[in-house]
Amino acid sequence: MFAKQGNSGNKVNIKRLTLYALLTAVCLIIGYLESLLSITLIAVAPGVKLGLSNAVVLTLICTNDTKGAYLVNVIRICLSALLFGSPISFVLSLSGGITATFIAHILSRSKSVSAIGISIASAVTHNVFQLVAAVFIVGFGVLYYLPVLILLGAVCGAFCGILAQLVLKHSKNFKV
């Protein structure tokens, strides 16, 4: 629906631009609140976050705006690394973020996968590729986390997927 508008002429679609900016801001705030929450989660599994900002990106993908999803995700990762992170956390979340968005992009083309399935797949991919990046930085010792990360990725992914599906169901005005 939007793609036609976006491609007509070289004019920037102001509504879309504002939407991306707004969603990026939402991602950053959610990410920050989450990092406060994850302090209590550290006792269960160190470094685990819920990944709620992925629900935002997922909502974009499910409205067939994959370009916007990549854009918001990459900007979100860069900004959150500048604001709260370190070079290492930037590399980790970038490798996870891009591969996760890519998997979500591919799965969203299939009509038989719902937002929940896409979310679970991309959350697990995110965690696995983050771990792959961590292997390059610190060595094979971190592979010990793989089962924990797959399981928690599936749980957090399901949560975000349900959230995204609820948002999609209740916001008919989301398509700008």
Binding site: S110, S112, V113, S114, I116, I118, I120, Q165
Partner: peptide, 9 residues
């Protein structure tokens, strides 16, 4: 709520 592809995932 869940479609066929979801179970595959």
């Amino acid at each position: 709520v869940l479609k066929k592809g979801d179970f595959l995932v």
